[in-house]
């Protein structure tokens, strides 16, 4: 156990050292990401507040919704963004083969060796601030129950975000030149800027059971706000942590399955 922790600590240290090799770039990036995502928050707020509400959701509530999306993305992407989006490139360059000569679970190696990108601290900081701002304005009390629920929701949602990144990367084993599934995933997340109850019920069912993106932010927010909206009961959000575990496990198993195929076919 102690050895595992030491190994993990070494990986983390290396990643952080790498982030701060170019401190000016790091901080310019930090500010840039805050500006970019901050602009998204602003435009969402302006749009909803100039109409008063969106399908029964106030501007503050929509801010909370998007804050859930961004904070879980910050955590999920912190671990999984580079290991997933970089996989195709690593397979082409041979770095992936080299990583398979290490005495370690290959999936875990990818996460620890390429993940943990400190650039996501900016997403995290911004979305945490917006979340607190929105929660205060909505009037949700900082009771222990609420805080525990929020943390569990965020963890579950982060696992969904990370899991989806890994799922996209499963296609990279086949499409080593360019994997368009990532574009599709990032574009699909545009659904999550606003409550999914504004879409038809078919789409809502799709985003709940087939591609459970709704559990990233819609169901957790709905649950927290006790808000009836959309085709399912607002308490569906309770299972968010379970959905998170399920998505990540499925993603992991598919990744390992594709790896075995890669081992036997070399492609």
């Amino acid at each position: 156990m102690k050895k595992k922790l030491l190994l993990y600590g070494t990986f983390l240290r290396l990643r952080i050292l790498m982030n701060f090799q170019y401190p000016t770039s790091y901080w310019l990036g930090f500010v840039g990401q805050i500006i970019s995502y901050g602009a998204t928050f602003c435009t969402i707020f302006i749009a909803v507040s100039s109409f008063g509400s969106l399908n029964g959701w106030t501007a503050d509530e929509v801010l909370l919704l998007y804050a859930f999306e961004l904070i879980s993305y910050a955590i999920g992407a912190f671990f999984c963004f580079h290991p997933s989006t970089g996989l195709a490139n690593n397979i082409r360059s041979g770095a992936f083969d080299a990583s398979l000569t290490k005495p370690m679970n290959p999936f875990l190696f990818q996460i620890l060796n390429y993940g943990q990108d400190a650039a996501y601290f900016s997403h995290f900081t911004l979305s945490l601030c917006v979340m607190i701002f929105a929660l205060v304005r909505i009037g949700i009390t900082p009771a222990l129950g609420n805080i525990v629920a929020i943390i569990l929701f965020i963890l579950g949602a982060s696992a969904i975000q990370g899991g989806f990144l890994v799922l996209c990367s499963v296609f990279s084993f086949k499409m080593v030149n360019e994997n368009p599934i990532f574009t599709l995933f990032f574009e699909s997340k545009n659904f999550l800027k606003y409550p999914i109850s504004i879409y038809g019920s078919g789409l809502q069912v799709l985003l709940t059971f087939v591609l459970p993106l709704g559990f990233i932010n819609f169901y957790p927010s709905q649950c927290l706000l006790s808000k009836e909206s959309g085709v399912f009961h607002y308490q569906l959000g309770i299972i968010t942590p379970l959905v998170g575990v399920a998505v990540f496990v499925v993603a992991y198993l598919l990744w390992m399955w594709r790896l075995r195929h890669y081992n036997s076919s070399g492609s």
Partner: peptide, 30 residues
């Protein structure tokens, strides 16, 4: 001057969205 500029796109996209009114038209702005 800095060897990396991966962050440049964030500034452009942020300013375009907020000041360029690419997400919502300016007529809704305060």
């Amino acid at each position: 001057f800095l060897t990396t500029v991966w962050f440049a796109s964030f500034y452009v996209s942020g300013f375009m969205k907020l000041f360029g009114a690419t997400a919502i038209p300016l007529w809704y702005y305060p």
